[in-house]
Design a protein around this nucleic acid. Structure first.
Lengths: 328, 328
DNA sequence: AGCGCTACTGCAAGCGCTTGCAACAGCGTA
DNA sequence: TACGCTGTTGCAAGCGCTTGCAGTAGCGCT
């Protein structure tokens, strides 16, 4: 409602001075500044964001492209991102891509004039397209490494490897990995690295799945895992593990006595009373937070400081009583 | 990059005509229209959203205020909302309120000049404040009824009542309700209505909790529920129920033989293979979708059509083998 | 006292699009 | 043939804020 002009009138200065008082206070005399601020307060000044965006080209919005909102992993990342955005007075606009490269490109195109930058969660577009987008507005990629772009990944394979180490140490010889979403870049990589690590340790790795990471699918995988003769199982995420454990419980198969278990991508809600599950804790919130923090920094600097910086966040490995020596 | 002026030059018309060709094609002659469109295509015209917002006051954004992103119920609502927003070429900006009235008001104030309307999920602000917000920009309230505003609620109590009916019919006399988030408006109402309905049916209702709706908390409630002597249990949501069932399974307490179970706020991931759980299915996605659809409609009409319309969406009650006569 | 600076402030020109109003065809009608 | 419409189009004035540039006052200095 109340614009620059209104404040100017009350403070007895020009609109330019009010504008400067607001965005570059060091340019106006202390006494004037005070007067302007009082006037602004009095008339209830609120800058018109559209006008500001028109002149400066900055909107205060960041766009976050996410494959799937119902995946708790992404939800956690968004939550972290949103918290940091809020700290910086930025707003997050969320677009769902359903993991389709085409849709991703479309959103990037549509939104590039309305935001100050992009956070891309597990993007599927070609590196070429993503880098191109970065030329117009800063881009931060989460959960994938892209040459030439600031990327944030999590060392889940490293964490899982430590769990394998522990299993080997306990004497397990055959271990199941309940694999994640079909076609997932992350799952693919995880599987590869696990395979290598297992070979190194002399473990026999049985991959079950990939399956859609939901409770029911975890339960459904129980039979195959039990019959595989494995003495330990890792699940792609907690939801799968919960489902698996549920089904094992129903069949009277004791955990961890008969099957040691652990999960990656651990979510808070997977915590169990009594027997906490061993897990690779992924700092999802931090991931989102960092992404936005980086974006703020890049958006502040004029192009030059858009130096890509890949970072791999460490995971926290929680080893609990859910890992025990195999029933001999 | 390419603006009205560029198109105008190529098409040999004035910028005004181009503008009209874009937003009110019925005002320009068919032949001109065609020429303008071709030119726009050729130069790759993209309207500058900030400029448009400045002149029209419309931004194409809706804001969605949500208490908590990690709650799958809200995530599902957002997903539904986002899908419909996309259909209408609108974008959703997400703000987390943490269920704090103060924060809610702040966001409403900050965002009111940058969006065309608000969707408020389970808002906690006073009805007075919410109605005030509605005077500047259309507001749709989800999961709470507010006089004078378009509200969308779900008839969960009705669904639960039908489950109670069924339980009574099966011969149960004492039933547990594992209550939801402490302080939740929704849980409060649900409890009240359940109480009345139970009384009407002559059922003895034991409320356990309220507890935070997570897997572990469901498991933790097992003891109290078992010791209460109830022969059936309803849980505030699926996560709680899964936790409860997990713990019962671990203790060798058979479901549903010893305890009939059901949940409200059922999520897809809670589906079980084998023994599906009786549940009150909440159409979360539809809830979000409808909210946005209503908002689009309101934002289109000029104030006048902002006639509040409360709607209560029906739930789908799924009755399965998880409800059986009590062990006598 | 006079000069050169520095520190502030105001002027005015946009940013790119929308829109009321005026201008002007081309047409039907009398 | 002249007049009044209706249908199109262009003109120009903003929308509210930012910012380069120019002007002014006050200061320290010699």
């Amino acid at each position: 409602m109340a614009g620059l002009e209104d404040v100017a009138r009350v403070a007895g200065v020009s609109a330019s001075t009010v504008s400067r008082a607001m965005s570059r206070p060091e340019m106006v005399a202390p006494r004037t500044l005070e007067r302007v601020r009082a006037a602004a307060e009095k008339v209830g000044f609120r800058a018109n964001p559209a006008a500001r965006a028109l002149t400066t080209g900055r909107t205060g919005f960041f766009a976050m492209l996410v494959p799937d909102l119902e995946n708790p992993f992404y939800a956690a990342i968004i939550a972290g991102a949103q918290a940091v955005a809020e700290e910086h007075g930025r707003w997050l606009i969320i677009a769902v891509t359903e993991g389709a490269a085409e849709r991703e490109g479309e959103v990037l195109r549509e939104l590039r004039d309305q935001v100050d930058g992009f956070v891309l969660l597990s993007p599927v577009g070609s590196a070429r397209d993503l880098v191109a987008a970065h030329r117009r507005k800063p881009v931060v990629v989460v959960n994938r490494r892209v040459n030439g772009l600031t990327s944030l990944t999590v060392d889940t394979p490293g964490g899982l490897a430590r769990i394998f180490d522990r299993l080997a140490e306990l004497g397990h010889r055959r271990v199941a990995y309940l694999a994640g979403p079909p076609g997932s870049w992350m799952d693919r990589r995880r599987r590869d690295e696990l395979g290598e690590h297992a070979a190194r340790l002399g473990l026999d790795l049985r991959v079950v799945g990939p399956v859609y990471p939901a409770f029911a699918d975890g339960a459904a995988a129980a039979t195959e895992i039990v019959e595989s003769g494995c003495t330990a199982a890792l699940a792609f995420n907690s939801l799968l593990l919960l489902g698996l454990m549920y089904e094992l419980g129903r069949r009277g198969i004791k955990v961890p006595e008969r099957l040691s278990v652990a999960a990656a991508d651990d979510m808070a809600f997977a915590d169990l009373p009594g027997t906490p599950v061993s897990a690779v804790r992924v700092p999802a919130g931090e991931l989102g937070g960092r992404a936005v923090a980086d974006l703020v920094e890049m958006a502040g600097a004029p192009g030059a400081a858009r130096r890509p910086a890949s970072r791999k966040l460490p995971t926290e490995v929680v080893l609990t009583g859910s890992l025990v020596p195999p029933a001999r």
